[in-house]
Amino acid sequence: MGWLYVFLAAFVEIFWVLGLKYSTNFLMWSGTVITIIFSFYFIIKACALLPSGTVYAVFTGFGAAAIAIIDFTLLGAEFTYGKASFIGLIIIGVVGIQLTTGSSEQEEKQALTGREGS
């Protein structure tokens, strides 16, 4: 369940980052603030279940890669193979962190918070 919270937070992050760039009126700014609140809510929930360093690394990496891909594909940002290579490295790093976060780290985190199996 912790990883679901991380990916929900990163998904919502895409919208608030784009909102920071494109908001022009009170309603759009309000939506941006609401998405920031949801994003941080999901991060807080994820940190209760997974190591916070891992959560933050995956959250920022996934969000940064997704936003860069959206910039290239939908918003007309300049695409270069160098940028694509570095985005690929971010994605590889995020997957690597997720794969190497063992269940023992999760069990230790749950023991510290007094929670049983999630």
Rank of each mutant, 00 (worst) to 15 (best):
I67R: 02
L112S: 14
I92S: 00
W3M: 09
E108A: 07
I90T: 00
L20W: 13
S104N: 11
T32V: 11
F38R: 07
L4P: 01
F59K: 00
K21D: 02
T80V: 12
L74S: 14
E78D: 15
W16R: 15
Y5S: 06
F26A: 13
A46G: 07
I91M: 12
V12Y: 15
F59S: 00
I92V: 13
V12P: 13
E108T: 02
V12E: 04
G117V: 05
G93N: 14
K21M: 06
Q106S: 05
V58A: 03
Y5I: 05
S85D: 13
Q110P: 00
G19E: 05
A68G: 12
G114S: 05
V33Y: 11
G114F: 04
S39K: 02
K109R: 07
L18H: 13
I91N: 01
E108L: 03
V33I: 15
A84L: 11
V58K: 02
A68N: 08
A66F: 04
D71S: 03
F62C: 04
T60H: 01
G53Y: 06
V33A: 14
G93A: 11
K83Q: 12
L89W: 01
L112W: 14
S118A: 12
F7K: 13
I44A: 08
S85A: 13
F38H: 08
G114T: 09
T113H: 01
G114H: 07
V12R: 06
Q106W: 06
L18I: 10
M28Y: 10
I70L: 03
W29A: 12
M1Y: 12
T113M: 05
A10N: 08
T32N: 11
A68Y: 04
A68V: 10
W16G: 12
S103W: 10
I37G: 11
G2D: 01
I97L: 15
T73R: 06
V17G: 12
E108H: 04
S103M: 09
I87D: 02
F26H: 01
I14K: 12
F72D: 05
F72A: 08
Q106V: 09
K21Y: 07
W29M: 13
A66G: 12
I90K: 00
T24P: 00
A9N: 14
T101L: 11
L4C: 02
E78Y: 11
F62T: 14
L49N: 02
L49C: 06
L112G: 04
I36D: 15
V6W: 06
L112H: 05
G88S: 09
G31D: 11
G31N: 07
A68Q: 10
V12W: 10
F11I: 04
G82P: 04
L27W: 10
E108I: 02
L20H: 14
A9W: 09
T73P: 03
P51V: 05
Y56W: 07
V95W: 08
G63V: 02
T24C: 02
S39V: 08
C47I: 06
A10C: 10
A84F: 15
T35G: 10
W29C: 07
S52P: 01
L18N: 12
V33N: 12
G102T: 07
G53S: 08
F42E: 01
A9S: 14
T54K: 03
I36E: 15
I37N: 09
G102L: 13
A46W: 07
W16E: 08
L20G: 10
Q98L: 15
V94W: 07
I92E: 03
L74Y: 03
S104G: 00
Q110V: 00
